[in-house]
Design a protein around this nucleic acid. Structure first.
Length: 202
DNA sequence: TGATTAGATGTTGCGTATGC
DNA sequence: GCATACGCAACATCTAATCA
């Protein structure tokens, strides 16, 4: 992922100079990830909207970017803040059930090359029609487990195991301490693993 | 090449806050 | 009061780098 993306040192001055090519490069590199993170926090119904809001915030805030973290981490942090703000402003909980069944969090196009899930789960043991059916059901089961996670746990799991971010970046994005980030991730994994075990015991 | 070391990551236990 | 989520700290484990 992002193999062709120039370094932050090169990108940031170009972005500040309103270089359209640079904007295009950044958007194509990070928009999918932003939507994925937004979806993890606010659910799929308004994830695109949150990502759009975050882009506006990024453009507005770029001149004040202090480069205390990478551009990517900074952008994701803005997404996280935008999503959390949006979540607070929503008078009711966003219905995660609005997600297209079984596709909410495991769209193969959203897995990067360095992520833990480099291949879509659909290929897991899908040697026969029965296996294929089971893998589809497993994916539905995992998606359901993800949807029941608290937003921070889901975001931590999404960023770590699906997007391959390191713990430092994740904690910056989610604005939690490193120890708490680790705990969030561990608890999220526990719950998803429990759901998978339950699936196999059926 | 094997031992050592440091940093990153994972695990666990316990306390606190919050909503029902 | 109870269940749940979050936060912190301490400890365990893994991994890559370094060195003899």
């Amino acid at each position: 992922m992002n193999q062709q993306l120039p370094s932050d040192d090169e990108l940031i001055p170009r972005l500040l100079a309103h270089d359209e090519t640079a904007y295009t490069q950044v958007v194509s590199a990070y928009h999918g990830l932003m939507v994925h993170l937004a979806r993890a926090i606010v659910g799929p119904a308004i994830a695109d909207e949150v990502a759009q809001e975050a882009w506006l915030a990024v453009i507005r805030a770029l001149p004040r970017f202090e480069r205390r973290s990478s551009l990517k981490t900074w952008i994701l942090r803005i997404v996280s803040n935008t999503a959390k703000t949006r979540l607070r402003h929503e008078s009711r909980t966003v219905s995660l059930e609005d997600a297209p069944a079984s596709r909410a969090n495991t769209d193969p196009s959203q897995f990067n090359a360095s992520g833990r899930w480099a291949s879509p789960p659909t290929v897991w043991h899908a040697d026969t029609p029965d296996d294929l059916l089971a893998s589809q059901e497993l994916r539905t089961c995992i998606d359901a487990a993800l949807r029941t996670l608290p937003p921070l746990q889901r975001a931590a799991l999404t960023l770590r195991d699906m997007q391959g971010l390191n713990m430092e970046s994740i904690c910056k994005v989610l604005e939690v301490s490193e120890s708490n980030g680790r705990v969030l991730l561990h608890r999220a994994r526990n719950r998803v693993h429990a759901a998978i075990e339950e699936f196999y015991q059926r």
